[in-house]
Amino acid sequence: MGSKDLLEDFVKEALVAGQGKDDIAVALADAGWSETEIHDAVDSWTGAEPGMPPVPHPRPYVSARDAILYGLLFISLAVLCWHINQLGFGIIDHLVEDVADRTRGSSYLRWSIAVLVPFLPLFLVLDRRIYRQTREDPGQRRSLVRRWFASITLLLAVLALLGDFSASVYAALSGELTLRFILKALLVAITGLLVLGYYRGEIND
């Protein structure tokens, strides 16, 4: 049994025994639990009514179905971001001449277009589906899988933005901050910020 379960069981038994939430919180604080842990544990239950045991508050849950749904959404968003940048880099290379870099191959751009053709509709359909599901059943917003994928995506987006910024500083220091580089760095930043905007607030729901 984890410490969280231990704590919640204790709170439940104390409520059944007729103790008030304030008294339970004091007892837990005396035992050395942190304020956050006490708050979470006490808030897990409503106070016991006569003839009714303590009622648990809704909790996060895990489901295999969510893993598929949110996993696909995560992958489709990642694929979109990757290939938006691949294509964008190719377009920038084509539009902006750089005497120091004459690579002009474009065959890889076709692969990016081919990948985006199915993944953009997939992303939009999944997003719409999840939107409808969570609107009809707000309980689905407590999905742990959803929060995990949102957290991983946010982490990757922040890392991408940090890497983008570091690369820009390095390019500036190395004399490589060309117009072509700036446009590419901007594209990466825009993509990263869009992902941050998409998942903003997910973790705190």
Binding site: I84, I91, R110, L116, V117, F123, I190, L194
Partner: peptide, 23 residues
């Protein structure tokens, strides 16, 4: 957050069209 969806879709479509023009 609707605008984010549209922005992602718009950026994707724009790069696809640009890619088609380039290739």
């Amino acid at each position: 957050r609707n605008w984010v969806i549209w922005a992602i879709a718009g950026l994707t479509l724009a790069t696809m069209v640009g890619g088609l023009i380039v290739t």
